[in-house]
Amino acid sequence: MPLPADILPAAAVSARRGGNRGDRLYHAALQLLGGAVLAVAGLVLLELADVAAPAARRLGLGFLWRNDWDPVSGAFGALPFVYGTLVTSAVAIALALPVSVGLALFLSEMGPRRLRPVVSFAIEVLAAIPSVVYGLWGLFVLVPVLRDWVQPALARALGFLPLFQGPPIGLGYLAAGVILAVMILPTVTSVTIEVLRTVPASLREASLALGATRWEAIRMAVLPFGRAGIVGAALLGLGRALGETMAVTMVIGNSPEIHASLFAPGYSLPAVIANEFAEATGEVHLGALAALGLVLFGITVLLNGAARLLVAAVARGSARSAR
């Protein structure tokens, strides 16, 4: 954003004279920027709502729970995409959370000191990989492994659950969930490490002095204290998983159906928007896609809000007990 070139020198001069004017200008500039961010978000919402309006008028609220989607015959239901998004994100978090908590404990409490930087670097690398590369890896490595090994094994061991029934084809909810798990691992791990840092050392000492091993001290004092924050970390990871587009599009199978089995192909909100927006025919189709965008926006806002509240609650809790 181009700032008037004379603001900064003026602020410097007034700082020498007494500082008030410079402070005011600085504040005003910050408020302007903060307001601009909100305004952009608001405009995006308005624009989306505007594009969605024809579809909303035609389809009504039923759009939200219809479970079929066929633009050619005019069927527009959001449910397959909402379902696919939620299911893949749930799989991702179920896989990523235990691994992340384990990694966070390894990095901050238990791991051999010499190994920690190596693991920490590996996690940073995961965070830097572009999502299309994850998608390619998913197609060429993960999907065959799931199809030939993991899904048959799961079907044998847990096939009595509807979750693990049906033909093992590789592409589908499970593949998308596993990729998402790897992608959100860095976020969840680093937030969990931050949460563990807020646990007062005195609690660890209290457990150790009672005759706890290091692991028992973690179970008894560290994890219970950080519980809400770790849930917050999981929700932040979930927020990332919900919006992830490219990698999911490449492995979820892109079929707008609802299946109980994780082996089945499905679709997600971001994936269908990315795939169909360019060739959407007619304002109802376009509007339905925009409405899907609004639904995704709503889900993300709800989750991020919940995550932030939980993390803040933990910060307050640790401040209280440190007193």
């Binding site: 209290a206 002095a209 009672l210 219970p224 809790g317």
Partner: peptide
């Protein structure tokens, strides 16, 4: 094992808050 035989009370009270 030893720490179960030799208990300790710290300078600042540190009950488990949870």
């Amino acid at each position: 094992e030893l720490r179960r035989r030799v208990g300790m009370v710290f300078q600042r009270p540190n009950p488990f808050p949870t």
